[in-house]
């Protein structure tokens, strides 16, 4: 059970009707390494929920396996920590079964782009109204530092000495090509900016994809310098996926912000308003 954390500062002493970010945090404390970017992402997610004034019980946070996938239990929302790579499938099931719930699927680059890569493509093209957050640190943290699909080809590791020699995956281009309806890049070190983007992503109809650069201080300590590399995207978002794809393919990988906000129709979630009784199905079997 995710008990709401006891308010520890004046930020939590507000009117009961107002939900502060702390209302979305549980009493369970993260096991992430001190310094991990995911702490800030958790904070951004709770800020976004607070901005949208969502009732915690009407939000489901779904994940797979990996460091970042531990996130559901750190929220006071309903959580689903499933198996490796299948978070988008589980989240799709939740949303289709209960369209009125807000579904946020979260995880890492290994979970989402490697073992879950196929689901990523199909979630983009299916365009179910949910938000997918990938905390990308270009490495497998929970299994101790193996290359992921977004790892640079020459990154040396025990499992791939001298590097994989394989080019990195470009999640934003893949998302655009596959039909995601909202594509953004954020940086964990900018929790308020990330919260803004997440709130927009949640509000946007259809499948919203937010790639968050979130440094791994344990296996990729050099990512501490990301803070100096990131910058706001120089141009405003577009609703033209081809233009957005061209931009993200040619940028430096550190453009932050909403890069694409599409107008595709989301996957229909409506159920028949006038369902018939089960007995009526029997007619077709009559010999």
């Amino acid at each position: 059970m995710n008990d709401t954390a006891t308010p520890a500062s004046v930020a939590e002493t507000g009117r009961p009707a107002v939900r502060t970010p702390a209302n979305y945090k549980s009493a369970t404390k993260p096991i992430w390494c001190p310094g991990c970017g995911d702490y800030s992402v958790l904070s951004s997610i709770t800020k976004a929920f607070s901005m949208l004034a969502l009732a915690p019980e009407e939000v489901v946070v779904v994940s797979g396996i990996g460091c970042s996938s531990r996130i559901p239990a750190y929220t006071s929302c309903y959580g689903f920590h499933g198996v490796h790579g299948r978070a988008l499938a589980a989240g799709t099931g939740v949303k289709l079964a209960r369209p009125e719930l807000t579904v946020l699927v979260a995880g890492g680059d290994g979970d989402g782009y490697s073992i879950g890569g196929n689901h990523f493509l199909h979630a983009c093209r299916r365009n179910v109204d949910l938000t997918y957050v990938v905390m990308d640190n270009h490495v497998y943290g929970m299994t101790k530092g193996q290359p992921s699909p977004t790892t640079e080809p020459d990154w040396d590791s025990k499992l791939a000495p001298g590097g994989t020699g394989v080019r990195a995956f470009h999640p934003l281009v893949i998302a655009l090509a596959s039909g995601a309806n909202f594509v953004a890049r954020a940086f964990s070190g900018d929790p308020n900016g990330t919260a803004d983007i997440l709130a927009q992503a949640i509000r946007h109809p259809g499948f919203s994809f937010v790639e968050i650069l979130s440094p791994c201080v344990t296996f990729r300590p050099e990512q501490r310098t990301w803070k100096e590399n990131v910058h706001p995207a120089p141009v405003a978002e577009t609703d033209d996926p081809a233009r957005a794809a061209r931009r993200v393919m040619t940028d430096d990988g550190f453009n932050m912000g909403v890069l694409y906000a599409g107008r595709r129709k989301p996957y229909p979630l409506g159920r028949r308003a006038d369902p018939v009784g089960v007995a009526e199905l029997e007619a077709e079997f009559a010999a």
Binding site: Y39, P191, Q223, K227
Partner: peptide, 16 residues
């Protein structure tokens, strides 16, 4: 990105 007093997450270490 952050308020001036904030200590950045990436500046801490578990053995600090």
């Amino acid at each position: 990105f952050e308020a001036p007093e904030n200590v950045a997450h990436e500046d801490v270490h578990y053995l600090m």
